[in-house]
Each structure stands twice: as C-alpha cells, then as structure tokens.
Design a binder for these strands. Structure first.
Lengths: 128, 128
DNA sequence: TTGCATTAGATGCGACTGCATGTAATGTTT
DNA sequence: AAACATTACATGCAGTCGCATCTAATGCAA
C-alpha cells in the first residue's frame, strides 16, 4: 500500500464528501426542508421498514449518540417520526416514521439520487 | 452508471470520511494540538513551499471562505503562520508559515499518515 | 433487598461551520 | 474624476456537532 496512493485516496474522499454534502444540504434543504442528517435517518427507517432503537440508528448514520438524539428530536418536532418507549427495556426509545415522514422521504429521494448521480458520474470502480 | 452502485459509493465515502475525520481529530488534537483543518492548511502551505493568498487556499481545502479566514486566524494566534498584506492588491492577504509552524507540521505528518494508512489499508483501486 | 457498575438516551456547553453582510480596495463606465 | 459594480477578506449570527455529564432503568453481586 503506497503512501502517496493513500493520500490521493484521502483527498478524493474529502473532495467528493465536501461536494456531495454541500449539494445535498442545498437541494434537500431548499426543495424538501430536510438536512442531510434528517434525510439519512428517515432513509434508514424506511429501508428497514420497522421502528428502530436510537442505538440501532447510531450504528448506521455516522453521528454521535447526542447528535442523533437531536436529529430525532427535530424530526419529531416536524412530525416526521415519533418516539415511543420500548417495553422490554424502558430505558430504550423506539423511533418510527409517520405517514408524513414517509411521504417526505419519498419526495426527497429522487433529489438525493440526482445529486449523487451527478457527483459520482465519473466514479471509478471503488467497492471491493 | 447503476444507481445502486452510486449509492454504495456514497456510503463508502461517508463511512471513510467519518472514520478518518474522527481519528484525525483525536490523534492530531491529542498529540499535536491541531485540528484537521489547521493541519490541512499548514500542509498546503508546506506543499507549495511559498506564501499563499487566502483565496488560493480556499481552492484547495474544502472550507468556505469564512471558515478558512477563521482557521488562519487561529493559526496566526498560535504563531504557526503569519498574515501579511499583498502589495500588488492591498485587499489580499498572504499567509506564510513560521518556523514553529513548519516544525509542528513536520511533527504531525507521520501521525496523519499513520491514521490514513490504517483506515485506507483495505482501499481498492479508486483513482481513475 | 441493598449497593454498585453499566447502559440508553437527553442535555449543557464550547467549538467549528456556512450564510449573509460589512469594510475596504480595485475595476469599469461615463 | 465620479458613481457604481466587483472582489478580497473579516465578522455577526444561527445551526449542528462531539464531549462530558445527567437521569433513569437495568444487571449483577453480596
């Protein structure tokens, strides 16, 4: 593993990340009133198609537990998800998506896909 | 360009970026008192080996102009760089690295490289 | 049961970020 | 030259983040 190659890869990741995050923030925000983190959380719930523990979400979105807690709070305030206690462990919190949340996610999905498609149009084979 | 492939690439970028940024923040911060943005700015100046306009740096590090202005302010306060007016265009600001800044960068470089090497150890061919 | 360590999630706090805007220098038009 | 647009950088501000810490529930040992 050549050092210069590692550094190039890192710069590639930095560039794509910055460009994509910036575009997603703009597009999702303007068109759908969602931040990238909000979208990602909705997306994960829809993908699993069930209510999830906060901790399960933590493993999937790249946020600290505290940041995730606040994203969920914002989503709940916007009535896109709701929180419910977990009966088997009353410390836990289940997060489930509302109808409005599902609709908002569905509307935002093409926007996200379009942004990613444009930015990764030139992407070389990458996943091993 | 398959959509699922684009999404996978995006998730790969997100994961590597989060992991690397988190590790760099910890390692560079603890061992050298530098944040990732601070290191990157020092690194760019060393790489060019000359004083740079703020705007030139803007093109290379993925920060807004305002964020970069503040990074430079922090670095100047720490005496790792100094700002000087540009004679040919007195709106402009030159940023040059100090001896201390050069030393700090040199000390931090192996730390950064080690972090990246570990995180991208499994990286497949990526740059076209 | 009682006492202590652990775990889930919420929250205070300080740091960094981007956007909008401010200030000053430059360029352009008439 | 005067007036206006543009450019370079700095700064007020609000938003999000991670860390440390708090509260409450759980687990485990004596």
């Amino acid at each position: 593993m050549d050092e210069q190659y590692v550094v190039s890869t890192w710069h590639y990741v930095l560039a794509k990340h910055a460009k994509a995050m910036c575009a997603l923030e703009r597009e999702l925000g303007d068109k759908h009133g969602l931040g990238p983190s909000e979208f990602e959380v909705l997306d994960r719930i829809v993908h699993h198609d069930r209510k999830l523990r906060i901790q399960e979400l933590c493993d999937e979105v790249h946020l600290s537990q505290s940041a995730l807690s606040r994203v969920v709070a914002r989503l709940e305030k916007a009535e896109l998800v709701c929180r419910g206690v977990c009966d088997s462990d009353r410390r836990g919190v289940f997060v489930s998506i509302t109808e409005e949340g599902r609709a908002r996610h569905l509307a935002a999905l093409p926007t996200q896909r379009a942004v990613l498609a444009e930015i990764f149009a030139d992407a070389p084979a990458l996943i091993g």
